[in-house]
Amino acid sequence: MSALRVCVEGVGLWSPQLGNFAALQALLCGTAVPPPPARPAAAVLPPNERRRAPESVLLAVEVAGQAVAMSGHDAATLACVFASSHGDQATTDYMCRTLAQAPAELSPTRFHNSVHNAPAGYWTIATGCHAPSTAVAAQHASFGAGLLEAVTLALGEQRPVLLVCSDTAGSGPLRKVTGCTQPFGCALVLSPTPGEATLAQLALTLTPLRMATALPEPLASWPDINTSAAALPLLALLAHGHGCCELGAAATLGLHIDMEDSA
């Protein structure tokens, strides 16, 4: 196959240490950055939705909002791909705990918030987006698989696409099973053609899985405590502005990503 070429037009990022992409850029330059407020603002959501949305939705909407604002696109026009390895772990913990103890008391709202596409649902409702939306998972490779889905959507349909990849921290006994001990979310707006908002041009090729690109400290261990942080090699590449990286796209499949000189 020939390389898949796509342009990055916006980047969003949120973790307890880094409130946006600029904070990551500063961190990589050795500048100390203050942590963001404890809860993602998710300002795109109307206040009543923000109150009842689970944490996974706040995190996904926060990074999506950042990336879309940077891109200058109208969110309503963007097809969107929401990737997450584990969905909303607090909701899963609540559901399983309630079902084990008093199943008839299950909350209907928490049930509909338990679907893997809850962030996609809240996002499309809040932005009035009727474009195709999807929600995907691929265990440790959720970011790479989601990126592949978003890139094929952007190139196949010749339209800009919002990609979000986020995971919350684990709750209850599930926390030891998923190994997620802190939240992490990121988002990209990808376009098939260069434009005024283009930050970087990427060329992606599928390869047999080798080692994912190593990360500088203090980021090196982040992918071990949140599967969505597997996106960091690409985010660091975007922060540096040149080079290449490799990510997992499936159990035995990798994605090699070259950043190309902007036209």
């Binding site: 939306s133 999807t134 796209a249 499949l253």
Partner: peptide, 20 residues
């Protein structure tokens, strides 16, 4: 999908779509 990819010995793109 993680199980089925092993059961079918496939090594290409592998993804779960979960939109209810």
């Amino acid at each position: 999908a993680a199980f089925v990819t092993v059961a079918l010995s496939l090594e290409g793109p592998c993804m779960t779509i979960s939109t209810a």
